[in-house]
Design a protein around this nucleic acid. Structure first.
Length: 787
RNA sequence: GGGCUCGUAGUCGAAUGGUAAGACGUCACCCUGACACGGUGAAGACUCGGGGUUCGAUUCCUCGCGGGCCCACCA
């Protein structure tokens, strides 16, 4: 017996059933079925799944379930991206500052708690990974593989250590990743200051006079007639330093005076120029924001130095004017202090020399939708710097290197030292005689996550397994991380194996709040998946995801869609109850096909077309269309019309014949069974519940059943044509009753239907559904007369 | 500034080189033996604006206006 109502408690029942049956088990020893492997994104362990996760995880769960039903041995592992600054911040807030090793342990314990929570959410949504293959980026085994990959790339000459500017917060005294920064509009002052070139006064505009001591050149636009004649001449700063005046296309002629001083660390543009013009990097500021290499101004804070320097210039008559300026300034997202670029020793991975290989590999993959590859092409083409992979953090993968603080020498750890960590590092001596110390910086989290296709393939130590599941069949992910996750993964895996890491990429967009804005705590417009599961059921949430529109585009969350899904679930369950009751004592047999009537042939023909279309949709990852198709077919064709056509045959076999009833039973069974199979990837719980009325044993599951095959023999254009007219006639009768405020079951006196196609044999259906005493049929242009 | 994307009824959104689904909302009627989380019906769109290609465009091209995302960014 089917459940009375469908909700999350029924879903929990089936979730336990699947876990007990190991329904999603990947069979490593199966050599017959083709393997379909999915390189799922490991979510960052923030403690909560957000709607973006739900959307994307639903998408690849649809794929996994669809592929399973299509005979694939689906490899669907799930991991966790554990390490990172946000966790450090939370753990420090709770426990305070600690020694690195103790702090790490606290971070791990904290993260385990969060994983538990998130895993519970995933299960409650009916996601179907094989949890036996779960991984965590914070575990020694994962570290080992990351470190191995770094040592390999170091051997290949792709990993190196060098001095480089990094984003730095002088307030928090920490290097920052770009993602830790945000932009703030600020009012600043633009100072116009005289420089001297060939005896002429040339005006340079700057907001950072305190960086004058780090000025290494002055730039102008190559087409700027005002300065072209001074090209490559020496120019003197107000501090008496002589530098070159150079042309550069990135200078705005209209801004300020058209001259810009190049300091090695004003902002990122300065760094780009510094490299482009091969200028020496001058350290201008220390970690706490005090000037260095600034002569008389050494040790001063930026603001103080700026005032002093301006005073000096003013008294010497070099100050032309100062003007207010609205400027976008990069700040640390946590403390809102302006970010500086500081020079420091960091580890890098060379990406600039491998652009072509990366692009070629990307072009060999199928990107869905196809325009998304452009994000990768643009990003790769415009890359200017190598990838800074070291972070001055604690909760991260230790970089497997030794460094000498005295002479700057560095060397890799041995492969036998993996997993490498600072407390387990060996005592080593540098060739200069000083002590070689373990690198204390950790790896950027993208270094961890950029080898997921390898880690899930047990690279590098299980070649047999690797051969089976690598490259991944599918990499599903968000568009917003193409530049990072997709890019780094393609690059690293390509370098490490010579093979691209996946065959297809499926890109999804973001979920916005119902008001179309980004969901954020400060706006208070966040929607919690847990509540939706309780209020609407997981299968409704999943249908919302499927309906959530075109791939790779952002869409606001829609209560309409999820409410519709809930109503549809109700409809599906209730219609199934009717079918269940109608099939009592019925033994299905294809023999009954010989008794099919026009209405049966029609719905079977329609079913066949739906099977074909929905299958095509799943192949193209068009879950929106597939779901809509199923909704419309089942609700508006099967329920609204077909069920009404057969009720009389089901209820009164004595009057309409046993064979007619059997044909109806056959058709009901066929359509419902195939519909729930088509719908099972999207609504796994409800379809499993309904499937229980068909199954032969208690451990049978719909998710291991075969995907419906369309039977061309059931296509029947004539039946479809006739039913178009028949449905039209019924609609007219219904309209007549509505217009005359009659109940639908009111009996009419006499109905005359004129039709261009013969309705012979359908009289009984019209009479039963339309309720009338007398029916007359005519040939001719379509019309319905009621008296 | 660059790239990508979108602009269809009050709202959300399909589809199509031949004048446009459906859902929510609104209104009217109906508790008809699966379902009131239901049924039937009604009202509601010159498919952002201009130009072009075409016999014909909402659909293709182009310009503009207006959103969104990503990137770069003024020293």
């Amino acid at each position: 017996m089917l459940a009375d109502k469908f909700d999350s408690t029924i879903e929990a029942k089936w979730q336990h059933f699947w876990a007990a049956q190991e329904t999603y088990r990947f069979d490593e020893d199966d050599n017959k079925r083709p393997i379909y492997s999915i390189d799922t994104p490991p979510p960052f362990t923030s403690g909560d799944l957000h709607m973006g996760h739900v959307l994307s995880y639903a998408y690849f769960d649809f794929v996994a379930r669809y592929k399973r039903m299509n005979g694939f041995n689906v490899y669907f592992p799930q991991g966790w991206d554990c390490q990172g600054f946000p966790t450090e911040v939370k753990v420090e807030a709770k426990h305070g500052k600690k020694e690195p090793e103790e702090f790490r342990k606290l971070c791990v314990a904290w993260t385990e708690e969060y994983i538990k929570k998130m895993k519970g959410q995933m299960d409650s949504l009916g996601f179907s990974p094989d949890w036996r293959y779960e991984y965590r980026t914070m575990y020694p085994d994962y570290h080992k593989r990351v470190q191995y990959s770094l040592l390999k790339m170091h051997e290949m000459g792709l990993v190196y250590r060098a001095e480089h500017p990094v984003f730095w917060c002088t307030h928090c005294r920490s290097a920052l990743a770009k993602t830790d920064t945000e932009e703030l509009e600020k009012q600043t002052t633009l100072h116009y200051i005289n420089f001297t070139c060939k005896g002429q006064k040339l005006v340079v505009a700057t907001t950072r006079p305190e960086y004058l001591h780090a000025c290494v050149a002055v730039l102008f636009h190559p087409e700027d007639a005002r300065y072209a004649k001074y090209a490559n001449e020496e120019i003197e700063t107000p501090l008496g330093k002589r530098v070159l005046l150079l042309a550069d296309k990135d200078v705005e002629m209209e801004f300020g005076s058209g001259l810009v001083m190049l300091c090695t660390f004003g902002d990122k543009q300065d760094v780009i120029w510094m490299y482009r013009h091969k200028m020496p990097a001058i350290r201008a500021m220390d970690e706490v924001g005090r000037l260095v290499n600034a002569g008389a101004y050494d040790g001063m804070k930026a603001k103080e130095a700026a005032e002093k320097i301006l005073d000096k210039i003013k008294t010497e008559g070099g100050h032309v004017k100062s003007a207010p300026l609205q400027q976008v300034v990069k700040v640390h997202d946590r403390c809102k202090h302006a970010i500086e670029l500081l020079m420091s020793m960091q580890w890098f991975i060379n990406v600039r020399d491998k652009k072509k290989e990366i692009l070629d590999a990307a072009l060999r993959m199928r990107w869905v939708p196809d325009f998304t590859i452009q994000y990768l092409v643009d990003w790769t083409t415009n890359l200017e710097w190598d990838w800074v992979i070291s972070r001055q953090r604690v909760f991260g993968t230790p970089l497997p290197f030794y460094i000498c603080e005295k002479c700057g020498h560095s060397e890799p750890a041995g492969y036998d030292e993996l997993p490498f960590s600072v407390p387990n590092a060996k005592k080593k001596t540098c060739k200069c005689g000083a002590e070689l110390k373990a690198e204390t910086s950790t790896a950027d989290c993208w270094v961890d996550s950029s080898i997921t296709p390898l880690v899930i393939s047990r690279w590098p130590d299980d070649e047999k397994f690797m051969k089976k599941v690598y490259p991944s069949s599918l990499r599903p992910q968000g568009v917003e991380i193409i530049r990072t996750w997709a890019f780094y993964t393609i690059y690293r895996c390509l370098m490490l194996t010579g093979q691209e890491p996946f065959r297809e990429l499926l890109l999804n967009g973001n979920v916005l709040a119902p008001d179309g804005k980004k969901m954020s705590k400060s706006l208070g417009n966040i929607i919690a998946p847990d509540k939706l599961v309780v209020d609407y059921s997981a299968d409704s949430v999943r249908q919302w995801a499927a309906l959530s529109g075109a791939m790779a585009k952002d869409r606001p969350f829609s209560y309409q869609d999820i409410q519709y899904a809930k109503s549809f679930n109700n409809k599906l369950l209730n219609a199934s109850k009717l079918v269940e009751k109608s099939l009592e004592g019925y033994a299905a047999s294809d023999e009954d096909r010989k008794y099919l009537r026009g209405t049966d042939k029609w719905i079977l023909s329609r079913m066949t077309r739906v099977i074909e279309e929905v299958t095509k949709d799943f192949e193209n990852f068009d879950f929106h269309h597939a779901t809509k198709m199923i909704h419309d077919f089942f609700w508006h064709e099967f329920c609204d019309y077909y069920l009404e056509y057969v009720k009389h045959r089901l209820y009164s076999p004595d009057k309409y014949g046993e064979e007619s009833r059997r044909a109806a039973q056959y058709t009901l069974r066929y359509v419902l069974l195939n519909t729930i199979k088509l719908f099972a990837p999207v609504a796994p719980h409800l379809c499993e519940e309904i499937h229980s009325i068909f199954r032969k044993s208690d451990n049978e599951t719909i998710h291991k059943s075969a995907w419906p095959r369309k039977e061309d023999a059931l296509l029947d254009a004539k039946a479809e044509e006739m039913l178009t007219v028949l449905n039209g006639a019924v609609a007219q009768i219904r309209q007549h009753k509505a217009a005359n405020k009659m109940p639908l079951n009111a009996e009419l006196e006499h109905v005359t239907v004129t039709s261009p196609v013969s309705l012979k044999g359908a009289e009984e259906d019209i009479i039963a559904v339309g309720r009338m005493k007398k029916l007359t049929l005519h040939d001719g242009e379509f019309s319905v007369k009621i008296s």
